[in-house]
């Protein structure tokens, strides 16, 4: 009798657990779909860049403007931040609150320095008179890279908010789910950057 009761209770408990897991999986899937639509947004910007890349209108072209080592440093920094963000998820999975915070801070610092480098690059171009007003090519360069930068800014804001959550509420199921989503967002931004690095900077350097 008592065994049968515990059995039933177990089943009810498991059903609830399954329902909760399913809901989390649904939320994460929804976020994935959003990321995929964001890919199309970036693809449109890439298409514009590809079409306008030679429309320099007497201004400088890609090979003249961009410094390759600078772009490489940016890339490595962002890639490393993607890795540390993964480590934060790993720590969260093991419920190490402090380690999660540590990796969040590292990720934030790396992301912020990436953003700083990007803004510095923009500043240098503008100071030389090569702003987005200069030519169709520069318009498309600025907007493509700045859209990525805007996403990074939102990501940084999100990391800050999540850190407060971890600090105040610990790693509840809800917080865990959101950390997973945040890491998806951050990795996604690195994925987009692969193509910016290749198409804008490397293809620019070899004058495609």
């Amino acid at each position: 009798m008592s065994e049968a009761v515990t059995q039933t209770l177990n089943i009810i408990k498991s059903n609830k657990l399954i329902a909760k897991y399913d809901k989390d999986a649904r939320d994460i899937f929804g976020f994935w779909v959003y990321l995929m639509t964001d890919c199309v947004l970036f693809a449109s910007l890439f298409a514009v860049f590809a079409v306008l890349r030679h429309n320099t209108y007497g201004g400088p072209g890609a090979s003249l403007l961009f410094s390759m080592p600078y772009a490489l440093v940016e890339t490595i920094i962002l890639l490393t931040s993607s890795f540390t963000c993964g480590l934060a998820v790993l720590s969260a999975q093991l419920k190490h609150n402090k380690r999660v915070l540590f990796w969040f801070i590292v990720t934030f610092a790396l992301g912020a320095s990436f953003l700083g480098l990007e803004l510095n690059e923009f500043h240098n171009f503008i100071a030389m008179g090569d702003s987005w007003r200069r030519s169709g090519f520069l318009s498309s360069y600025f907007v493509l890279v700045a859209t990525h930068g805007l996403h990074i800014t939102l990501g940084l804001l999100w990391i800050a908010v999540m850190s407060v959550f971890v600090l105040k509420r610990g790693i509840s199921d809800l917080v865990m789910k959101r950390i997973r989503m945040l890491s998806m967002f951050w990795h996604f931004l690195d994925v987009v950057w692969i193509f910016i690095f290749t198409i804008v900077y490397l293809f620019g350097a070899i004058r495609v």
Binding site: Y21, D22, G86, L87, L90
Partner: peptide, 20 residues
Amino acid sequence: ILVSTHQPEQVTLRGYVIGF
């Protein structure tokens, strides 16, 4: 079995290191 198949994916250090 049902519970374990519905569980969210667990990430591993190994995966991240390979990716990085």
